[in-house]
Each structure stands twice: as C-alpha cells, then as structure tokens.
Design a protein around this nucleic acid. Structure first.
Lengths: 152, 152
DNA sequence: ATAGTTATGTCAATAAGGCTGACATATTAT
DNA sequence: ATAATATGTCAGCCTTATTGACATAACTAT
C-alpha cells in the first residue's frame, strides 16, 4: 500500500467530515442503550477502560480519559454505588484503589460493545480491510502532532 | 485487500479504543484554537458545514448535526453577530435562510482545518494508505446499523 | 517522629452544549 | 381562509466538563 497518490485538499476535507460522521454514528448506538438506564457516555468510557484494564487505578483512568478527578468523581461513584464497578485497596500501596467490573458491569459492557463491534465488523467486511490495517491508521491518527512524543 | 483474516474479539476491542483515542486527539487541536476566541466545538461544526456547503439552509444544517434548532440557535446567533456567518433570504422561498461564511469565517475555518489536515496527511503518509481507502473505511462505519438505509 | 508528598474524595461555583415544551412570525401551499 | 413550513426565541432542565479549595489516609524521606 506504499506510495499511493497524494491526498488532495478535497480528499482531506472529505476525510475530516467522514471522521465526524463515523464517530457520531459510532457513539449513537451505545448512547441509546445508556439512556435507558439513565447513564451517559461518560459512564461508558469508564466501564470500557475498567473492563479492558482490570485493576487499573483512579489516576491511570484519569490519564486515559484526560478529564479531572472531579468530573470522574460523580460518574465513578454512581457506577460503584449501583454495583457496576468494584474498588479494592491495593495491598502494596493502600492509598490506591484498584478498579474492576462486577459481573453486572461486565454484562453492561458487553451490551454496549455489541453494536460497536457489529459496526466495525461490517465495515471491515464491506471494505475487505484487515483489522490490523484499520488499527494502524487509527494509531497513526492518535497522539500529539509534534512527532516528539509519537511513542505515547 | 479482500479476504484478509477475520477480526478477533481482541482486534475489535482494540479498534473501539483506538477510535476513541483518535477522535479525542483529532478534536483536541481545533478545540485549543477555538478556546482562544471563546468558541466551542459546536461553533466549529457549524463553520465546517457552512463552509463546505455554502448556501445550505438551517434545516439542512440541523439534519447534518442531528441537534435541535434550540441548540443550534445560540451558536448560530453568535456566529452571525460576530461576523463569521452570513444569512441571506432565499429568493424562491423567502422563509428559508441560506447560510454562508464571511471572509472572517473562511479564515477561521482554514485555521481550524490546518491541524486536522496535518494529522490526516501524516497518518496517510505514515501508513502509506490512500485517502480513498481511509474514506472507504470511514464511510462503511457511517450510517444506520440496519443495512436498510445504507445509501444515506 | 515529623514533615512533605501522593492518591483519592468531596464541596462549591461555573460553563458549554445538549434537551423539551411552548409560542411567535413570516411565508408558502391548499 | 386555513394549514403547513422554516425559522427564531423564551424558559427551564440535564450531563459533563471545568477551576479552586480543602480533607483524609497512607506512603516517603529526613
């Protein structure tokens, strides 16, 4: 796939717009499910990362989400109180709380994941692209623009 | 690129997450520019679509953004008052207002577009993918999940 | 032991950007 | 004339973010 023809301004313009539409629709499906149980997108993000990185700490979660602890606070509190997320004190550093999903939380995550997985699978099938290639592109879209910290 | 190996659950999981990161970083650059002039992401969206589809009506803009007219109202009003967007009455149907960017608006759009264009160009360069391929994938990610209205 | 730092949590105030519902106006269509 | 459409606006509400200040517990260094 190397050395394809360069992108024109119009190509770029189209990609900017498509990226907006794709993300808008990508989040719309789980949003609808979340609305039923009076949760929002913020809850989804927490459940996603806690589910995917069981045992992560609050500080690590904040860094992933790039929000303040005050913002996380309410959402996390709700998730814990309603039994979606577990907090256990770390043995070595008892200030830290290790987060993980309860079974209830794992069930919700799976429910939220499904439409997004279906959407991605159909897109891969439709285009014939490998997951690897899509991942490569999205990774290249991520991070700071100054190449300095590309390894992030 | 047809018939690549099928995506595993882990592949999908990674793509879901990468999509979140990519969009987070994609919007962070213009957000920083907008903050300087006390605008938000909502202003960006309006400027983008008005710039890209000069002469579109308010109703069309609402459909693109998928928000209510009350939500659009505040943002559009600001953009018009501060001279970024023009409204002209349609000749044939004088109820309609055709929206377009002023020079000031076009300048701002260009300024906002630049970091996003740079990000996309570097991602294409880094991966060696053609803009066309990226567009194809993002289009496949867009729309309703029920194939019924795939042509949208 | 004491002092400082770290991880977490919480309170209060503020803002952006969505939402619903209601209503107003001008214009077009029947 | 009446109804429907395109737009705008008022009022109130919600979620999710922000900053700043402060509290507590636990770890680290002196």
């Amino acid at each position: 796939m190397r050395n394809s023809k360069p992108a024109t301004d119009d190509d770029i313009q189209e990609l900017i717009e498509l990226f907006f539409f794709a993300y808008r629709d990508f989040t719309a499906d789980p949003d609808a499910i979340l609305a039923e149980i009076e949760f929002g997108r913020a809850h989804h993000r927490v459940i996603h990362f806690v589910g995917h990185r069981p045992g992560l700490t609050v500080a690590e979660l904040l860094e992933l989400l790039r929000i303040t602890k005050q913002s996380l606070g309410r959402v996390l509190k709700q998730l814990v109180e309603e039994g979606f997320v577990n907090q256990v004190q770390d043995r070595e550093d008892r200030r830290q709380k290790r987060l993980s999903l309860t079974e209830k939380g794992a069930n919700l995550l799976e429910k939220l994941r499904t439409p997004q997985a279906v959407r991605i699978q159909s897109a891969l099938l439709e285009t014939g692209y490998a997951a690897e290639d899509a991942a490569h592109f999205l990774k290249a879209m991520t991070g700071s623009l100054t190449a300095a910290d590309k390894k992030e």
